[in-house]
Amino acid sequence: MAEIRTADTQMSTAALQKRESKRTVWRVISYVILSFWVLVTIIPMYWMVVTSFRDIGFSATFTPEWFPSSFSIATYIRFFTKTDAVQWLINSLFVSGVITLSNVLFASLAGYAFAKLRFPGRNMIFWVLLATMMIPAQATLIPIYIMVVNVFNLADTYIAVMLPFLVTVGNIFLMKQYMSTLPSTLIDAARIDGCSEFKIFRKVIMPISKPGVAVLAIFTFVSTWNEFFWPFLVTNSSGMRTIQVGLATFKFAETVDYGGLMAGSVIAALPMIVLFFSLQRYFLQGITIGAVKG
């Protein structure tokens, strides 16, 4: 009996070792693949930073220099002195900030209503809203342009840049999904204690929705910061441009001021890099938040 047990133990140790070595092999393979992927992601950023410190003027050589032969901050000086870069950065910050705040407010309110309140036509309205997401942006571009520029006469204003994005259906959907996971018993208890619906939203729902709100805020800020075409379409003066639209002015028909463009790109990317590293946790949450069953 004892011999059999020893044999069993020896077999299971061997199996465990085999399994462990298999795991090690897979781990090595995944690290190799991930390292390759990290390189693919980092190389363009590295090239951007290196080129931003090379003052190569308006005529770049085709071959990138991986190890810079010279170092210059002239590109940064040119970017800030020859353009309205500071104004573009302020515009981007302002536009992204207001759109983020507005989305947090309106998407949370709508998300709460769709997730927790019962009213006639709730599901139908929600599905109609979701259906609007199926319409390609290209199809709605001209009607929105007509409304903003022709009807409201808002061309070249902050409102024109922000109006179509003050609340998006995607964000309403995100908040509805998140708030559906919150316990309804808390709301019922608050109602019994005599709270109004708005007070419940403010005092009960919002405090426990912080992770969802953070995800919404981060993603909205980043996407608004990176938006190019709409601000380009509705702004006309240099002073109204956002940083992404401003960067496009470094391109000419036949040449590009690569040094200046890359210096501007580094400056434009910096807030996003800082934002990402300081709020990494929420970015990761954002990947799974929409997957929670409502």
Binding site: T61, F62, A253, E254, V256
Partner: peptide, 12 residues
């Protein structure tokens, strides 16, 4: 057009 110019400038 810019890439074409770069190749030309680079004697390629």
């Amino acid at each position: 057009p810019k890439k074409r110019m770069e190749l030309f400038y680079n004697n390629q």
